[in-house]
Design a protein around this nucleic acid. Structure first.
Lengths: 342, 342
DNA sequence: CCTCTATTTGATACCGATAACAAAAGTATA
DNA sequence: TATACTTTTGTTATCGGTATCAAATAGAGG
């Protein structure tokens, strides 16, 4: 490994002078600079980040802690974050908590040890608060994305889950649906709570009764909806839902799979809407009606805020960006066959 | 920040003793160990990786250098790599080259500076060779995934592009197609070359003539297929393709979009097959016939090989894993309406 | 109780860079 | 040419750990 000492010896200067050349410091004679730079190039010298970090307390690495990169929503968050990080000279460390608090905690500890400069953090749920406290105690800047945590002060970028839910449910109502079920994510996430609030509010304002039996909660990822569907289908016919609002894209998929197993077709026998789109193929074979969130922006803006915190630029007060979802109406909510109609 | 010196002072021992406790070194008196461990816990000490790396020359970070995390194929590669890395106590740094050699080179330089322990590398194409040489010169272990580079010795995990192509084209042939077009990725990638070889070979063995006018090349990502489709559709009717083999999933999507713009419907007016599936929603609304590759395994096995190289375990000779693709037949290649048939 | 060996602990140097200060060289002015 | 000031370069200490060797302590055997 080539060090500044090797360069220094060959150039007949002190290591300090080499360091100055590398860092474009002031007051270097032009001839010296050129001589040193030539040798740096010749030997292919690359600064050792460990040594630098030891002094500067900075690694130029930020961590992206999400629940699962496999969810197209987070894939795009990651892409946005990486783009911004690169632009600003940072690198991105990837961690998947899998909506699991223990795994999340493990990662937090790894990150602290690695000495990342900051964390872009999509918490798995309210339990994440203890991990956030750890970050606060360690004085590591972080920015929340997608999910809010009560009682934690920070920059945050998220979507308007309430508004999105309202508009999705209104859309179903406008299609003539009366019994609309909610199959939501876990209520220990702010997104699920807000979506439920939007759902309930819309039903209330529309004078549609909402019934506990139509409201269910499963995991946002890798969960089966079989039991829930079983329950919903066993309701007496006049209470049985004709439409389902799924908490996110994965839930929607699992719901559809469960329905298909029962011989129920979407959208003919059941309408479906959900949060989060399925990029990149959502558009070409349009199927799911969704409240699409600009995931890339979450990542990009989140990374930007984070880097501003790290570098001490940007405002003192915390920023809270709430991005509006875009409702995209597709087949899954349009083809339902009402009895007596059509 | 808490250091071993703080611990040492409070425990009335030397820093060296603290270091020994942290590293479970031999020959520590039990009472001493307990005393020190208690204080470590009390002060919430976390070892500083920069200081450790400076001595050990190891960061426990591996880099995943791919072309685009947004492609579901690489999303799953990333997930596999991250899982294995975590298991082995490593963290994963994410970089997207966007199939661009300059960006790739930039990342390589960042990685060298960061001092990653190894690189899991999906090269953008043959130009990547110079970057691989840089890694070799710097003595940084790497494992290739998905794409092979002539003249580079390394472990590699990839798919059988030739075989996959053969079977996809055979499937189209068996459906009665005679004029089958190839819209491939760039021929400076090993995957594109192998897929083309499989395509040509199958046509030859099937006594189907292959014509240069049916063979095209565009980018694997974010490219438009409009021009190519324009050309293909303007062929005289007896030469015009009734089926298209797309080099990968993104190309397939862009092809379908271009066709739709021209009022051509898939699969009725044109059959489509391609490489790489669109997880996670490929299954529930089955559409594209694909040669699916076990992307998760690429990442998982690649990371495993890489870590074995880093740690000096595993065999001396290079490993070459060629994973067979799985052909999944769906609507996109089944509904074509032949004149006079059906 | 003393000697000899084994175990446990400590002192020092170093990894590669940079901050802070000191010294040397260069320039301007009288 | 001597003096004062500026520019450029060098010396030393330090970041937080660990390798290496030396010192201290404990344990065994006579």
């Amino acid at each position: 490994m080539v060090t500044i000492y090797d360069i220094a010896k060959k150039a007949n200067v002190s290591p300090m002078t080499v360091s100055r050349v590398i860092n474009n410091s002031s007051n270097i004679k032009d001839t010296t600079r050129q001589k040193v730079e030539a040798i740096i190039k010749e030997l292919g010298y690359i600064p050792n980040s460990a040594a630098r970090s030891l002094i500067s307390k900075r690694t130029h690495i930020i961590s992206l802690l999400i629940t699962d990169i496999t969810n197209p929503f987070f894939t795009r968050v990651a892409r946005g974050a990486e783009d911004k990080a690169k632009q600003s000279g940072y690198q991105l460390l990837l961690s998947n908590s899998d909506e699991n608090i223990d795994k999340e905690t493990e990662y937090i500890n790894m990150l602290l040890s690695t000495g990342v400069d900051g964390v872009l953090y999509a918490p798995m749920g309210d339990e994440s608060k203890k991990n956030l406290r750890t970050l606060v105690k360690s004085n590591i800047p972080f920015v929340l994305i997608d999910r809010d945590i009560q009682g934690i002060q920070s920059d945050i970028v998220l979507g308007d889950s309430y508004e999105g839910a309202r508009r999705l449910v209104e859309h179903l109502r406008d299609q003539g649906h009366k019994n609309i079920a909610l199959i939501n994510g876990p209520s220990n996430t702010s997104t699920a709570r807000e979506r439920q609030r939007g759902y309930e509010e819309t039903l209330r304002l529309s004078n549609l009764p909402y019934k506990k039996k139509l409201m269910w909660e499963i995991q946002y990822k890798e969960d089966t909806a079989d039991d829930v569907i079983e329950q919903l289908l066993s309701l007496p016919k006049n209470q049985r839902p004709t439409a389902i609002f799924a908490g996110n894209n994965f839930i929607a998929v699992n719901v559809i799979k469960a329905l298909n197993k029962k011989g129920i077709q979407v959208p003919d026998d059941m309408a479906i809407v959900c949060f989060d789109d399925f990029e990149p193929i959502s558009g070409f074979n349009p199927f799911l009606t969704v409240a699409a969130q600009s995931a890339y922006s979450y990542g990009y803006m989140g990374a930007q805020f984070l880097i501003e915190r790290i570098e001490g630029t940007g405002p003192k007060e915390n920023r809270r960006i709430v991005l509006p979802p875009e409702i995209i109406v597709r087949k899954s909510s349009l083809g339902y066959t009402f009895k007596g109609r059509k």
